[in-house]
Amino acid sequence: MSGETIAVRVVAAEAITPTIKRLRMVARDGARLPPYSAGSHTVLTMASGERVIRNAYSLLGSTLAGGAYEVAVLRAPRSRGGSAFVHDHVGEGHELTLSVPINLFPLNRRARHHVLVAGGIGITPIGAMADELAKVNASFELHYAVRNEARGAFCGDLAGRYGERVRLYVSERQERLHVHDILMRQPLGTHLYVCGPEGMIGNVLADARALGWPETSLHAERFLAAAGGAPFALRLAKSGVATTVGEDQTLLEAIEAAGIEAPFSCRGGVCGECELPVVSADGEIDHRDHYLSAEEKAAGCKIMPCVSRLRGRELVLDL
């Protein structure tokens, strides 16, 4: 395990929509959980029989004063086990382990105005941002696109709390979020934050760039759901371990399953913590991360095992 961890117990588990479950967790030893900043995530470690599952989830709200932690978990349509496990097996009293909060999607505190854009479950970090900005009386607006109100977690809550500052776009009612129009009327010094499906993030950022927004004012949370792929052989040169990376397993999970400690933080291909040196690759490395530069990916000397894998026979890592 990389970094500090906290042993927690689930004290409330509630289906807030047919596909989203909210978990509320407190420290098992009764200690105060550390405060965190909006945009932070935590990595949940769950034991499913023999298998250890680790998934990253954004922390809801922002407990600037410390307190219970809450996450909202969407049942992924093609879950590799994590979200399905939460939905099917995690209830009140269940014991889990969390990483300390890590923030890879922080607010820029020097912004004059904040435009928050969320699609679907992407509301989890965005809602925390609204919470924190409201607390410090910062200027913001929140645009939240959902399929229908029943599926949009927190729709009622947000409208109640932030009133005029929240706009809801329900696609079943033919309401469309026109980001271009929203960005057109923003003052200089505005920062944009977007979290949602990959396609939505791409469109929002493209609109902003077309309007000449500087890269440093654009912020996106693009956790990749670590997806599987064809199995391949793995050899760890230093540890002398040989194993197989299964089709539903990530490279990092296979390393952990072999009993080897490897560093990690976000498990979503963005933070860079799990970077490993490649000794040799019999096949083509399938880089899926947002961390390595194009040149680094082409060179093939490094891999981010939390999301990337090999299309080929055998990968040898310097671990």
């Binding site: 970094g3 500090e4 550390p34 965190y36 300390v100 909060p101 890590i102 933080s265 933070c271 860079g272 913590e273």
Partner: peptide
């Protein structure tokens, strides 16, 4: 810098 950007709480 790369190392510090990933500095974790409690560490």
């Amino acid at each position: 810098l790369k190392f510090l950007l990933n500095l974790q709480q409690g560490r």
